[in-house]
Nucleic acid binder design. Structure first.
Length: 422
RNA sequence: GGAGGAGUGGCCGAGUGGUUUAAGGCGGCGGUCUUGAAAACCGCUGUACCGGGAACGGUACCGGGGGUUCGAAUCCCUCCUCCUCCGCCA
């Protein structure tokens, strides 16, 4: 959410400067709705002030005063209704207005305008035609798409044997690096969250269709970003507690509304997937540098795993709702012959902090300030397994275990066929 | 799931329909006094929004929401959280 005085000042400028981001967001109506709300509030407060004056004396009011107060009651009620309506209309607009892109973000309407920042590693020369994971996995007996569909439905997968262990190993591998080498505190949060939490991180009210909801009002978290960022919702942190660095493994649940037909094969886009996430709450002046650090820390995991990748900066038209700047890390997938998004590292500025009221106080007696929030995937387990299978495959269809992962696989160096009896 | 109790400012805590403009205390900030400090004494103390160059003025906020009333921290309804007990349970 952006501050009201800022929107009051800048609504026309934002519309003119970033049509690819602000067209049809309701920003066109902001100035008018804000004026209407303030007029309504001012009128209401004037009447309430009068009522308070009449009721301020000791004992029972005079008959005349009583008469006036009875009349005021109706006026106040009408003005309250009007003010609530005006406030509701304004809130509906302002909760759906995206954050302002950082000045270093490239301009453009869609992903074709994203800017490649750097590339690490080189696609391997296999000497044979590499298979896609949706062929490799079932052939090895470690990915079972049919039974995933039977048990739950489309976009669910069963991991078996080495894939299941690989999943567990990757979770531990990522967490260990974040905790032991990069200074994050490990969190195991609830996997369900309430509406306030989802509002705080920006999924609600605009993107509710992407979420799974329980019949009694909970939401399945789409990412650990939600519960972890909301750890400090409605809190004022001490300066000594800044910055806060958290990492968390959670399963993630996404209804993938609107993604019909995209990435339908294999394990790229699932309703349920595991992910290790990192979240930072930092002082505002440090958030730009923190985004670089956070991105590099997540790249480090791919480097350890020996997976070629590149980093792109999302352009203004591709940038997520609450983000000021996002680096996507894209891993090379030889079976699909493309770089595919594996991690998204974003600086939200104070956008989430304002929605969730996460503040800090620089010193005793000073006014609380909003923190800046950042988060990044480090890493999504399913897509990382996909990347390992495709990048480490051998001519016979078996797969080498990346060296860094072997200790987490109890020394296993290669994944072969599990055996018959599937 | 059932029964009972409780939620008031940074913290403790009083307040059961009209000087509550939320008592009192603690903590914090400033001052007087002092060579300095402590003690004592005096003053100040939150958040959001509205009006306004500003100073300042106003409105709202006593767990959330709704209601009754001319008027609600106080009465009613509902939800949430915590505590005690019962039941069930990995």
């Amino acid at each position: 959410m952006l501050p009201r005085d800022f929107l009051r000042e800048n609504a026309p400028r934002l519309l003119a400067e970033y049509p690819e981001r602000y067209a049809d967001t309701g920003l066109e109506d902001y100035v008018r709705l804000d004026r209407e709300r303030r007029d309504a509030v001012t009128a209401l407060e004037e009447k309430r002030r009068r009522r308070n004056t009449l009721t301020a004396g000791k004992g029972k009011p005079s008959p005349e005063a009583l008469e006036e107060m009875k009349a005021l009651k109706e006026e106040i009620r009408a003005l309250e209704t009007k003010a609530e309506e005006a406030d509701g209309q304004l809130a509906a607009v302002e909760t759906g207005i995206p954050n302002v892109p950082d000045s270093t973000v490239p301009r453009g309407r869609d992903e074709t305008a994203n800017r490649v920042e750097r590339t690490w590693g080189a696609p391997r020369d296999f000497g044979f035609v590499p298979q896609a994971h949706w062929d490799l996995g079932p052939a090895l007996g470690i990915l079972d798409f049919e039974r995933g569909a039977k048990i739950a439905g489309a976009r669910f997968t069963v991991l078996r044997g080495a894939a299941a262990r690989l999943s567990r190993a990757l979770i531990q591998f990522c967490l260990d690096i974040h905790v032991e080498e990069q200074g994050y505190v490990e969190i195991l949060p609830p996997f369900l969250a309430n509406a306030d939490s989802l509002f705080g991180t920006g999924q609600l009210p605009k993107f509710g269709a992407d979420l799974f909801q329980t019949t009694n009002g909970y939401y399945l978290i789409p990412t650990a970003e939600v519960p972890v960022t909301n750890l400090h919702r409605d809190e004022v942190l001490a300066d000594a507690d800044m910055p806060r660095l958290y990492t968390a493994y959670t399963p993630c649940f996404r209804s993938e509304a609107g993604a019909a037909g995209r990435d339908t094969r294999g394990m790229i886009r699932q309703h349920q997937f595991d992910k290790v996430e990192v979240v930072m709450l930092v002082r505002p002046e440090t958030s730009a540098a923190a985004l670089e650090t956070l991105t590099d820390q997540n790249e480090e995991i791919l480097r350890r795993l020996g997976l070629p990748y590149r980093v792109v900066t999302l352009c203004t038209g591709d940038l997520g709702f609450g983000s000021t700047k996002t680096y996507d890390i894209e891993v090379w997938l030889p079976g699909m012959n493309t770089y595919k998004e594996i991690s998204s590292c974003s600086n939200y500025g104070d956008f989430q902090a304002r929605r969730a009221s996460i503040r800090f106080r620089r010193a005793e007696g000073e006014k609380p300030e909003f923190v800046h929030t950042l988060n990044g995937s480090g890493l999504p387990i399913g897509r990382t397994i996909v990347a390992i299978l495709e990048n480490y495959q051998r001519p016979d269809g078996s797969v080498d275990v990346p060296e860094a992962l072997q200790p987490y696989m109890r020394g296993q160096t290669r994944i072969g066929r599990v055996g018959s009896g599937l």
